[in-house]
Amino acid sequence: MSEVLLAAEGMTRRFGGLLANRDVNIQLERGVLHALLGPNGAGKSTCINMLSGDLPPSEGTIRYKGEDITALTSYQRSKIGIGRSYQRTNIFPKFTVLENCRLAAQSRKPRPWSLLTNALRMPEAVERARAAIAEAGLSGREDRVAGTMSHGEQRQLEIAMVLATDAEVLLLDEPLAGMGSEESAQMVTLLNRLKATRAILLVEHDMDAVFAVADRITVMVNGQVLESGSPEQIRNSPDVQAAYLGHEAEHE
């Protein structure tokens, strides 16, 4: 029996009259990569924002390891092991790559009172940061100023930062968008490896990537879950084909 880490029940979010998420139920289990698909505006980012605590849900309950965490803020959720990346790159542009990740790693043992410590030499944080940089494929670019790197490299950094926090639940909002094909392939390999010990929610438009890594797929349309199941089930679902996959194919 797999271990459910993060679960949303009846999660709803309104923006004025707009129902961006409507009665969404989703479960993230350790060892499972759960892909979230849907056309633009379907409500995928809103869903991640509620799971990460960036946005409070209008209704519904979010549980982490069985405990109700609906009222926890984003920093509290990060502390207990829920990490996320952003669809729109959200880094520290003036810091080096290493400092971006070191700061992310420092959050695990923040030690705000040890004024005599040189933060740049905290061995644990620096090691974890370097490991995350290597995993995200940015080795050799530790000293680059983040804001001066290419868009694709900044996307890699975006992932490296979540990895540096050592989160157990990874909420990844279109991590591959903007990456080169080589980096994408490397990231897919990485995701396959990471999921063994973590629960991952992956929002991604690249169907090949999704079917290469997903163990479970949820399709959202207009803020609602259309269907949720194994990749086979989703691939063969007439509803999904009509509402989404077919829709994509039309454009190709």
Partner: peptide, 12 residues
């Protein structure tokens, strides 16, 4: 530099 990201990294 980026308070929003600091929050999401777990800083109060």
């Amino acid at each position: 530099s980026n308070e929003h990201r600091m929050l999401s990294l777990g800083y109060a």
